[in-house]
Write a protein that binds this DNA or RNA. Structure first.
Lengths: 190, 190
DNA sequence: CCGATAAGTGCACGATCGGTCACTTTTGGT
DNA sequence: ACCAAAAGTGACCGATCGTGCACTTATCGG
């Protein structure tokens, strides 16, 4: 890996960290450059424009999410065991010290959900795929269930994780994790 | 109500609409003034500064939420009946045509949750109070349940509504409402 | 109907936004 | 060790950010 590639990766890394706190719109070229001890033009050399950087950032977020949530769970058996691991990993992802503001995909989602454009499209694609992955796992857990039921389970899974971030970060609720796992138990069954 | 009061209210109304789409940071003095056919200084005359405007905006959001979600449900009997109405009203609040980007409190929450300051404090206070209100209703529904159980129910309630906004707005999921009510049924019990 | 006060305008300000360009420094293959 | 290409700099651009100030216009009680 050449120096350019390395710098580019480090920029995306820092940007991801900032997105988790300030949101996608909140990270500016100036802040980013300052945080990296680089000039604004030095940053832009690795991306044609700010929007290109943001698109690359969404890709980087997807890659990291897959690497830190899905990959560790993949070796486990489909269904209950894998879901258990996925849930644990997704909580850990939300708590990662590399993401001081929690899941950057959540920040981006609430920010972009009503702003048409390539950013929203890419993010939507990411989340739709994740929903399908979860649905597969729920199907393995409950082979007899119909599609509507499976989708409701996925819906609730997402709800639990959104509520986890909300309770922990805005409400400073110390019991957020306990409540998330309690809700998970109610969903999956003992 | 003098003309000043009226204009001030209309500014906050327009700002709330914009927050639901662009988020709290996304609404600027210039855009706001343009949307109101007013000059930037004309807007700022009603508020000492932009941050003061934002604080007033959070109050306005709280008032509207109470008026449109809590008030219509208040006449109903505590517990099941009132919860039913509250849930219906909160879904309607999310769908309100006055709020083209969904619940502005949700936008503000994910945006401010890691940004210390008076804005975050006020929003947190708002959401904590709402959580307490929900807990009271769940206690009326399940008088035998312990505190932890009640809080898990509140946690899940919030999760359902967060997932509703996410599914409807980012994923364009037509069945979002159906899934939200299905999840509600699972939570409350038939 | 008048005059004090409230409401709103218009211009200018310093700061910051994303972005360009000519330039210098660094890197790495031969 | 050399030198072309890659990496990064710094000054500058027009636009927009929030804000202050001197000013004009509209409102409304006496």
């Amino acid at each position: 890996m050449g120096k350019g590639e390395d710098t580019r990766a480090r920029i995306l890394d820092e940007a991801m960290r900032q997105v988790s706190v300030r949101g996608m719109t909140g990270v500016s070229l100036g802040d980013l450059a300052a945080a990296m001890n680089l000039s604004k033009s030095g940053v832009l050399k690795h991306f044609q424009s700010m929007e290109t950087l943001q698109l690359a950032l969404l890709d980087a977020m997807t890659d990291r999410f897959v690497a830190e949530v899905w990959k560790p769970a993949e070796p486990f058996a489909p269904g209950r065991e894998r879901l258990e691991k996925l849930f644990e990993r997704e909580l850990a992802w939300n708590d990662s010290e590399n993401l001081p503001g929690g899941c950057p995909l959540t920040s981006a989602a609430t920010e972009l959900d009503d702003q048409p454009g390539p950013l929203r499209d890419k993010l939507k694609d990411n989340r739709v795929r994740w929903g399908r992955t979860l649905k597969r796992e729920f199907r393995a857990l409950r082979p007899e269930a119909d599609d509507a039921t499976l989708e409701t389970l996925v819906f609730q899974w997402k709800g639990i994780l959104l509520a986890y971030g909300h309770s922990k970060r805005l409400l400073d609720d110390e019991s957020a994790r306990a409540q998330a796992t309690a809700a998970y138990r109610m969903l999956i069954g003992g």
